[in-house]
Every structure is written in structure tokens, then in C-alpha cells.
Design a protein around this nucleic acid. Structure first.
Lengths: 225, 225
DNA sequence: TTGACAGGTGACCATGGGTCATTTACATCT
DNA sequence: AGATGTAAATGACCCATGGTCACCTGTCAA
């Protein structure tokens, strides 16, 4: 087995790197992280296993890089979508939550990867990688917070970041609850298990809206004179 | 190496099972799930590795059993603590959230295990085990919801369960964010990373309070006549 | 005392992440 | 074109770890 072409120039290397990430992301759509082997990723790239390690120091670093891409794209998209949201109306929390939930549902790879971030991906990376990732995150969270404040004018300063952090927690938790392993899904399909079933978008929208509503200053309902 | 005593009677077997679970829980307090090996658990129990598999069908099933115990105990404790909460005052959401957060912080093993539930533990168990676990959960959630409604009288019917499900999501997400891997912790310790740091109890209390506030009917603030 | 049942054992297997000595494509120089 | 140096690519190999199973042995009933 031979490789078609070697990546000598930096742009070729970047392209190959991107190709690997694409394959990894596609594979993640079909099976759980744990069931994906580096050998399989390599095979689908028409590369040898060892070659993957020229581009990523570990399996975790590979998927963290994939997450990094997805995350950056999502933040950008979210910024635009929130800006397009005419803000200030009484149902601002609901519209905000709906927009956010929608934007996440459209990015399945992202919500597949997010739950792995702390438990798996960050467990086997070196400090440089971690620092670069958190740096990027910090920047994007800053931008994102501005967008949040734009969509939710009543929000107290500092609560923009807080909303994003809490959103992250909700996504991680809800996504896991909504996508159980096959065996568990079978059990949850029984009628009496209905209360334990979670539909991701709906539940994210509902919980985020409630949380934001609870963070906004009390709506003063003027009593009818 | 020989075992001191064999577990012949059912109660002896149950005791040994409990002993294994205790060892596993203690180990979990010291290192991440991924770093705990079945060989080590066995060694600390003064048993052979194979013996563990007489009591649990897989590593995942072992830790799921540990989680099951912790969860049942927590639900019971929560029920009592919520019942003791004089309800109905204006700051009900805050007091509710504080009580819940406190009860979880006191059970580190539980909050260590919860983030593993969907991503890891439920990935390698058979249907019977899954069914038993979900059955238990369903029962406890039912009881718990009653306790929630007791502490938050304004809550709409059905929202008691919803609060618990969303609480679960928050715990899973926040606990992971609050306990990063050592390498990541080092990065987050840098001053400029402050916005990305999360203190579990504080953040859980805050986000849960906000969410509950947002789920309660609008507080009508009577304007001064 | 003895037979047999069942709890216990640890050598062994399979899998999968990660390594590294070796191979070889390709740019460059003559 | 042919020779040469480089570094990209390879895959056989290493080893850690979850899980198995043929065998051993403590315990109890007869």
C-alpha cells in the first residue's frame, strides 16, 4: 500500500490535516467516539496509522482539533444569528433560546463532541494544546457574550459570559441524555419510561429560556389602575 | 495468594459486593475513571481480577452499581431536606437551589459518577441492567418531583420532573467544567482565564435558582398605589 | 471422611493506542 | 537525466487493559 502523494508544502500538510479532521467528523456521526479506532480513521484516509501521529499527538488531540473547528464556526454563526434577532421584545428569552437551540441542532458534530471535551479529550493532551484551545475559547466567549447582551438588553454586565457557560453545561448534559446507547434507548422506548425521555432541541430551548428569564431583572407587571 | 473466606451465603455475597463497590468509590475519589483498572480494584479488595467478574459483568456495570447506590441515597436525603424547607417565601428558588447544591457537594462520589453515566457507563451494559437502573430512576424521580413541588408551590404540574431532569443536565455539565484535568487546570489558573473557571457549588446554585425562577409564574409586583 | 458444588484464581487472549526503524517520494543540485 | 539529501509515510511491533476460562480449593452435606 502506498500513498498517492506526499504532503511536502505547508499548504499540502494543512490540507491533509483538514482531510483527516473531516474523516474523523464523518465517522463520529456514525458511531460513538469509543468505538472509533485510529486504525479505522487511518484506513478511511488511505493512510497508515502512524501517519496520523505526524499530524496529531494523540486520538484525543485529533478530536479536540475537530471540536476546535466546529466551535469556532458555531460561535461565528451564532454571532450573526443573534445580531439578526430584533431584540427588546417581551419574549426576548424565548426567541433567544430558540435561536441558540436551532443553531446547535444544525451542528450535530459539535454537540457530539462537546460532551467528550472534559471527560475524554482534555484528559490526554499536552499543555500547549490545552492553552491554545482555551485561548481560542476565551476569545470566542468574549465575542459571544457581546452578541448575547445585544439580544438580551436587560442582562446585567458579566451575565453574558455566564449565560454562555451555563449554556455549555446544559448542552453537555442534555445532549447526553437525549442520545442514549442503543440498549438504553430500547429500555426508554417503553411507555412508562416517557418521563425520562429527552428531546434535545425542545428541552434545550425550554431550559435555556427559563434560565435566561430567571436572570433578567424582574418584569414589573403594572397592575391595572 | 488465597482468599481468606469464601462468600457462600447470599448475605456474604452481598457483603462482598458492597465491599467491592466501596473500594471502587474510594478509588474514584483519588483518580479519574479511565485511570482506574480492574486489576487495581481487585488488588485493593484482596481478590483476583476474575473474581470481580463474578459480581459484575463489566467495569461499566460495576461503576453503574456504585452510581445506583449513591443516587438512591441522594434522592432520599434530598427528599428529607426539601421537606424540612419552609416553603412559599419569596426567595423560594434561591433556598431550593442552595439546598440542592449543598446536598450534591456533600456527595462527591455521586457527582464524580454522574458525568460518566451516559458517555461511559451505559455504553457497556446489558438490557436487564439498564432496565433495572432506569426503573429505579423512574421511581426516585417520581418521589423527588413530589418533594420539589412541596418546596416550590407555584410550580406547574409536570414541572417537578422537568426541574429534576434539567438539574441532572446542569450537574453533569457543571461538574465536568469545574473539575478539569491537571494540565487544563494549570492553564485555567492563569489570571486572564478567570472567565472560564467554574466553581461547582456556586455555579450550580446560581444557575438552578435562575432556571427555577424562570419556570415559576411571573411574580406580580403590585405597583404602589 | 469424603464427594461435589460453587467461589476463587491467574495465565491467557483480543483489542486498540502509540512508537520507531526503515522505506521511499520528491525537490534540488550537478 | 541521474545522484543525493530530506522528511513524509509506513506497518510491524510494544504494551496496557478489559475480559475469559480451565483449573484449583474451601465449605458443607451426607
Amino acid at each position: 500500500m502506498a500513498v498517492k502523494q506526499r504532503a511536502r508544502k505547508d499548504e499540502d500538510k494543512a490540507a491533509r490535516r483538514r482531510a483527516i479532521l473531516t474523516v474523523a467528523a464523518r465517522l463520529l456521526g456514525r458511531k460513538q467516539y469509543h468505538r472509533i479506532t485510529m486504525a479505522e480513521v487511518a484506513r478511511r484516509c488511505h493512510l497508515a496509522k502512524g501517519t496520523l501521529y505526524l499530524y496529531f499527538r494523540s486520538k484525543e488531540e485529533l478530536f479536540l482539533a475537530a471540536l476546535e473547528d466546529e466551535l469556532a464556526q458555531w460561535f461565528d454563526a451564532l454571532g450573526e444569528q443573534l445580531a439578526a434577532l430584533a431584540s427588546g421584545s417581551a419574549d426576548a428569552p424565548e426567541r433567544f433560546a430558540a435561536t441558540v437551540a436551532r443553531s446547535l441542532v444544525e451542528r450535530e458534530t459539535l454537540t457530539d463532541l462537546l460532551p467528550l471535551l472534559h471527560t475524554v479529550l482534555e484528559q490526554n493532551i499536552d499543555e500547549d494544546t490545552a492553552a491554545a484551545f482555551k485561548q481560542m475559547l476565551l476569545r470566542k466567549v468574549g465575542e459571544g457574550a457581546t452578541a448575547v447582551h445585544l439580544a438580551l438588553p436587560g442582562l446585567a454586565p458579566g451575565d453574558g459570559v455566564r449565560v454562555l457557560m451555563r449554556l455549555h453545561a446544559l448542552v453537555v448534559g442534555l445532549r447526553q441524555m437525549a442520545d442514549p446507547a442503543p440498549v438504553v434507548a430500547q429500555v426508554l422506548a417503553r411507555p412508562q419510561m416517557e418521563p425520562l425521555r429527552v428531546e434535545f432541541e425542545e428541552e434545550l430551548r425550554g431550559s435555556l429560556a427559563a434560565m435566561v428569564r430567571g436572570m433578567l431583572p424582574l418584569q414589573v407587571v403594572s397592575s391595572v389602575a
